[in-house]
Design a binder for these strands. Sequence first.
DNA 1: CTTTAATGTAAACTCCCTTAACATGAGCTG
DNA 2: CAGCTCATGTTAAGGGAGTTTACATTAAAG
Lengths: 212, 212
Amino acid sequence: MSWKRQDREERGYHHGNLREALIKAARELIKEKGPAGFTFADAARSAGVSAAAPYRHFRDREALLADVAREGFQRFEAMLSTGWAGGKPDPITAFHNIGRAYLAFARAEPAYYAAMFESGLPPDINVELRAAGDRAFGVLRTAAETLVGLLPAGKRPPALMMSLHVWSLSHGIASLFGRGDAGRRSLPMTAEELLESAMLIYLQGLGFPPKA
Amino acid sequence: MSWKRQDREERGYHHGNLREALIKAARELIKEKGPAGFTFADAARSAGVSAAAPYRHFRDREALLADVAREGFQRFEAMLSTGWAGGKPDPITAFHNIGRAYLAFARAEPAYYAAMFESGLPPDINVELRAAGDRAFGVLRTAAETLVGLLPAGKRPPALMMSLHVWSLSHGIASLFGRGDAGRRSLPMTAEELLESAMLIYLQGLGFPPKA
DNA sequence: CTTTAATGTAAACTCCCTTAACATGAGCTG
DNA sequence: CAGCTCATGTTAAGGGAGTTTACATTAAAG
């Protein structure tokens, strides 16, 4: 395991891929101590360079965090898309799979998740971040639109509202109970079971049949 | 506006109520820059005392934060209790009022809310904090138990699960959209409308009549 | 070989945390 | 009221860490 370029050369004066190395270091530090628990200098130290080196690649700590978050949203979108799987095997099952993917991401990538949602970053800090976030949410919205289409014409809720409901629910569960981190509140059930049961009740409230 | 004792005397050597003044200063700093955005010395400066003074009242910065959070949970509990109002005028309406109270608190007291849920504090950092949090959640749980009792005996979901669902949903909405803070995502509806609509659908899914 | 931009380093600068030693004032006791 | 005592703040000093500027080195291009 090396932060420097994995295979080639020994690294002379130049690091070779410092930008990526800093993002990776930031992720590991966030995972350990939270989005506020590391400093620009810490990231540099982890990457094996001097404290001033990061300034060549990021204007400040916030810019580094924003890049971590952007990268996170990209992976998040990919994971949600995989869960949705184009609505296969059937839209309802696929919708539940998005929920599972949501929690799985929060659990597997707590550092990305924290940078995305708990770092206090303004979503508009740059265009790319905003766009990446919107694309991830778009997966949920598309899925909601498909589901809404299954209901009889008179009983269709707004798909945007529905996707916001599910997003909020998922985020709430992930924030409160989603990470095994010590110190979090304990539960009589898993976060996944909690989300699944809530979604079942919610979908039933919208008029979807109990057994899909 | 003065940090010192509001009316009497000019403050001589002693501050008179530094402990409370520090908590208040912390709240204002959190509101401005987030739970991680201030330091022990900052709080002292805001309270108008030397950097060493806070050590007479709090072991460290974390202890100060914990006290802010504890105080927040107490007010939170009071606000939720007022919303519930013992189940008046009827349990369903009162349940919705809890939701409104939840969002109102997050909006009116972002500093408390951040200290309670977004500061990274372990809930078990001291017994009082844990107990205060549990009491606040207890309001929601009691309400859920009352509601569950309205359903026919064979169709009652676990009240604990139901309260966790609503808590997660409320927290998710509050976290993602609840604060008017610049930088948050914008919505085609208010957070209150979003929560109310979600709770209506959820309750209908549990078998509560559409019009209560 | 020289030039130039990219990339790191080193060191100055500032700020924070923490503790120790001292000062003040409020309340109790006789 | 005089004197003791303790809680509360202050000043001062150390040690450490983060940020940032000025300078040094390398790689690549002409």
